[in-house]
Amino acid sequence: MQAFEYASPSSLKEAVGMLSSSWGETAVLAGGTDILSLMKDYIATPKKLVNIKGIKELGGIAKQGGGIRIGAVVTMDELASSPLLRGEYASLTQAAMGIASPQIRNMGTVGGDLCQRPRCWYFRQGFGVLAKDGSGNALVPNGENKYHAIFPQGDAYFVSASSLGPALIALGAKLKVTGPSGDREVAAEQFFTAPKSADGRETVLAANEIVTEIHVPAAKGIRNSTYEVRQKDALDWPLATASVALTMKGNTVSKARIVLGHVGPTPVVAEEAARALEGKTVTADLATEAGKAAVANAKPLSGNGYKLQLTRVAVKRAVMQAAGVRA
């Protein structure tokens, strides 16, 4: 780790004031589960680290305006064990529980989950987020890409590591982002972005902005679920996930949202898959159809074609789980 200055402000205003407007100069510390590892590997070398856990207004889970407000430094454990979420927001609880390590759930925060950097092993080895060698050749397409994107965007082949992103997008959540000029609201769906250059980022946050809270609209009656395909039961990154939110009219799906995780540099909204469900009654066959539709536009790489299948299955199983349909 490179030496840095450390600050632990108690107000948001102070915290934002301490952040540099250019990436790399400063970094935000919340749970620490990602940023400290990045710093140990010299992937991040901030001169100042701003701890935001002491800012009271960033904590807490509460009902608000029919929906729910989740503070950015709420831990994954608080999220997973919150009675306010259980049931109504099953997809969030399930996504948080998918992180199979109690230690990480106790430390990792909701904001950190959204802002964590990719686990792409080329990125972690220092080849940049777009994973290029010294001559500018992309390393992923012909390299070891079994954990990479089947929905690459431009030169971005990594997968978004966020566990909560897909569920938040499916539920239509909005993020409050605070910067030097105040607050702005960003739809969860708009929050993630594929970087276009090596020093680009995976979200629309500016370097001196902080995710401060998340608003998830009411989900009463919206059947929602997250299904992760992981190799290990113990702590392991998912290979593909799907979060679904189904608005039902009787037995019929009136509106569906299906969002894929760990298959693209951002969570991927699967419009075709959602359309396959709308106006129909969920059966195993229909869920299978939705799974197929979800990957219709995928562009797998040399070694990750199997993720098409995993994605199809994740969608199928998430849909069936949400709808309460058995195989």
């Binding site: 856990k53 990480i104 430390m107």
Partner: peptide, 19 residues
């Protein structure tokens, strides 16, 4: 490196001492 902090298990390798 597991320790218990405020009653919860954590990885002490990803907690700063100052924090």
């Amino acid at each position: 490196c597991t320790m218990i902090m405020n009653g919860k298990v954590v990885y002490a390798c990803t907690v700063l001492a100052i924090d």
